[in-house]
Design a protein around this nucleic acid. Structure first.
Lengths: 344, 344
DNA sequence: ATTTTATTAGTTAACAATTACTTTAATAAC
DNA sequence: GTTATTAAAGTAATTGTTAACTAATAAAAT
């Protein structure tokens, strides 16, 4: 009906040569003489030719496209992560088809099947919290489509994955706090049913135990992952009358809620109480005082995951089952007072 | 080399029918009998057939794919916006190829040419701040590719665009503040060289003038768009010794900087000084006290832009030059005291 | 002078789907 | 009993590109 686009055939007709000659010239094939190449390139410019990548993909059986599935782009963490994946992909001349699962298994499955239909060269997936059926991933395996999980993985499928070492990082952070002279540390936890919640809580407990500090169950307050959960958690803590020196908040939104609730009581951060959260630099600096964090850099994760996938696609990485646990560092910002110089 | 994927031909061979029969059956074509359809669908399931959308796209000359160009995904505003575009696109069975220009004209041009090469059915573009050359957009026009600008537009090219009515909204917000009894209002501006900076500042000035309030140049502090710019701006203001009742911050990061600097002086928000910023609900609630905002809902913009584009693609909207200025509302949160009930 | 080699361009088939047209066989109409 | 109609499936051509061969010509080597 429209037929707007110029094809190689059109150029060939104009120059009275074969379309293969045009194809070869555009790919700088040695078959074609310099003079002919120049004529063709000039015609291309003049006629406004845009190569049809769809046709190219079909012919080459390769799309130079990566498919991404994230649970939710409104989570800044994933936004930064996707941004960094796009950066890395672009560097290697890959395009990105982005899909969002909204934490729904059905959407996730649908997205993945669609991406496979689009014949992406590889998949980057952060599984939804709901996901239990492994069928679609087994299908990807059967079709030999390179797939890398990031942040959250289905472990027993032998796909590569990249994640933060939450437990170790938490343990180390608490160790540093204890070394700095703190002993009264509470935890505003998520839910022990989610991997994030349980891993972080486990690290917290292990650190206390290994330092001989008894675990006070009333200082582990489960609740959720939102601002209101942080508010409620602190109110609960405040009601007991006995405050810790430090609160470890399970993420930055809970930390934000804690800030609000603490401010309401008139207590001062960090002088009266310190806060440690999980997150990354940019959001931590939105807090005032700036939030100390167990630093989970989304850009780092995105870069590593994308590179891993591209390596697998290009067959550089023979091993298609690489597990990378990103080493986490800490940013001791102004939400915690340095008791001793150990916190550095 | 690999040949993993099952094709319609494979299914046809297995069932000893023609591949056209398979194609028709899968599209529920009336040519094919119910019995045959059932046999084919069963074989499809059994053999794990995934339709090759690349081939389908080439054949149909339609990709059901939209291309997006955003300046930066680390800006939460754009992340929310893209999320909402994806939502809307998915509803209409469109895929999304996402690219990032990093505010660089060259990247933007490259992204757009690539997306055209991928034969996207339409383009959603937020132009980079750097962009001055219109060539690539003229090319898109010549190729008759539906294109909708969002947030920032190149106006004299007759493409549709969706934007916030910054000037009007700012004027109205300041009017409401004045009606509420405030007269001393300062503005932490961006740069007058950018459209955002100049539009917002113009609205601010117009509101003051139309209410007969003289403009105090020392209360318009240009600087930039980051946290540090907000800190510096308040320090400059503080140094003058004369404080306004309200600060209008050009965005949420500048507002955050202002919060920090104000807190440092011991002044209280909102009792000693109020803050009004631009932004959207989720980030405003991260502030404490929660930031009052001229509410620029990214989801709304994304939805409108995507629907507009899809309408143009499907020929529903005959007019391919629709300009939509989104009406902005206000969220009077706790960063401003209500002097009178007018702020509602 | 004839064979060999290199250069340059063209031919055919493939990729995996679709649409438009054609064939076959069975049924219905006269 | 012949013709018209309908259902169901098949054939050929199309989409825009690339890869693997093939062909023609000119220059170089024998």
């Amino acid at each position: 009906m429209k037929r707007n686009h110029i094809t190689q055939q059109d150029i060939a007709d104009k120059l009275k040569v074969s379309r293969i000659t045009v194809s070869k010239a555009l790919r700088n094939h040695p078959d074609i003489s310099a003079g002919m190449k120049e004529r063709i390139i000039k015609a291309v410019e003049r006629m406004g030719y845009s190569p049809n990548l769809i046709a190219k993909q079909l012919s080459l059986q390769k799309t130079f496209t990566l498919g991404i599935v994230v649970p939710d782009l409104e989570n800044c963490f994933f936004a930064y992560l996707v941004d960094s994946i796009i950066d890395t992909a672009t560097e290697h001349n890959y395009h990105i088809i982005l899909t969002v699962s909204r934490e729904k298994e059905a959407f996730e499955r649908n997205n993945i099947m669609n991406l496979i239909g689009m014949r992406v060269d590889g998949l980057l997936v952060c599984v939804s919290q709901q996901t239990s059926d492994q069928k679609v991933f087994k299908y990807a395996r059967k079709m030999k489509i390179p797939l890398v999980f990031f942040d959250r993985a289905i472990k027993d499928l032998n796909f590569s994955y990249v994640a933060f070492n939450d437990k170790i990082a938490t343990k180390e952070a608490i160790n540093q706090l204890i070394a700095g002279g703190y002993t009264k540390i509470a935890h505003f936890a998520g839910f022990s049913s989610t991997s994030i919640g349980s891993e972080r809580c486990a690290g917290y407990k292990e650190a206390l135990i290994s330092n001989g500090i008894p675990i006070r169950e009333e200082w582990i307050i489960e609740g959720g992952y939102e601002i209101d959960d942080g508010i409620r958690a602190f109110e609960k803590l405040w009601a007991t009358g006995k405050l810790p020196e430090i609160i470890l908040a399970v993420n930055d939104r809970v930390a934000s809620g804690a800030y609000k609730a603490i401010r309401k009581t008139g207590l001062k951060i960090p002088h009266d109480i310190g806060i440690l959260g999980y997150g990354f630099s940019d959001t931590a600096h939105l807090f005032s005082p700036t939030l100390s964090i167990i630093n989970q850099d989304p850009r780092k994760m995105g870069r590593i995951a994308a590179n891993l996938l591209i390596d697998e696609i290009q067959g550089i990485s023979q091993n298609s089952h690489t597990e990378i646990l990103i080493e986490v560092d800490f940013q001791w910002n102004t939400s915690i007072l340095k008791k001793q110089s150990i916190l550095s």
